[in-house]
Design a protein around this nucleic acid. Structure first.
Lengths: 110, 110
DNA sequence: TATCTGTATCGTAATATTGCAATATTAAAC
DNA sequence: GTTTAATATTGCAATATTACGATACAGATA
């Protein structure tokens, strides 16, 4: 097969998995970190920051945008990308809840 | 191609990407959430909790284990799986740092 | 209008992932 | 030792991802 059975899982599970999947590639992590480093939107020069060809970078940006991790707005003849804080807040919440639950775990098994 | 160019990125970037990738599938999210729900290791019956065949579940468990998200210990004739808190703390830290940086962003672009 | 610049899309090759049936393995129970 | 029960591994088909050259497109500038 190769096709994920998304319809067998809850909307929340799929939502988190989608965000995680989009971050499951070092190039996309590098893009996010670059956006953080410059502390602003980026209108241009993302390609120069990555060891990948322009179409590849464009594809990664598209995936980050589809997942809702970044926003992109047309700004003159280039496009302005920046981090969408809502998605990262979701991830922060999710992992904070998990960590908290794990720490408060009563049964200390392993 | 299809092979990720991991050698072009930093160790940290690859590490986070690996963790994120392992969580980038709803079945693996469901496994983690089930481990949390029962608040203990699981020795058995993960298969019954998921809408997937036994070999498929076994494969997902293997990936979670490879990524360091769960630990598995042999316990009699079954295997005892439980959440590895260190990995989730890493993720929590990472996304907390990102969210904080994004909130303190001076340039309000988009 | 022609050209340049930055970005997206198309097409395609290489590789990875997902899922499962069949089979193997392992340790307990008999 | 044989059976049983739980999990892992193998092998394979279907699909997805990654990467990039070639090309298209849109807005700026000459």
């Amino acid at each position: 097969m190769g096709a994920t059975k998304t319809d067998h899982f809850t909307g929340k599970q799929n939502a988190i998995a989608t965000l995680a999947k989009a971050l499951g590639h070092p190039a996309r992590i590098a893009i996010i970190e670059y956006l953080l480093k410059v502390d602003a939107c980026i209108c241009g020069d993302i390609v120069n920051e990555l060891p990948l060809a322009q179409p590849t970078v464009s594809q990664h940006l598209k995936e980050l945008k589809n997942a809702g991790l970044i926003k992109g707005e047309i700004e003159g003849n280039s496009i302005c990308y920046c981090i969408d804080e809502k998605a990262f807040q979701k991830l922060q919440n999710y992992f904070t809840i998990i960590s908290t639950k794990v720490e408060n775990r009563k049964s200390n098994c392993c």
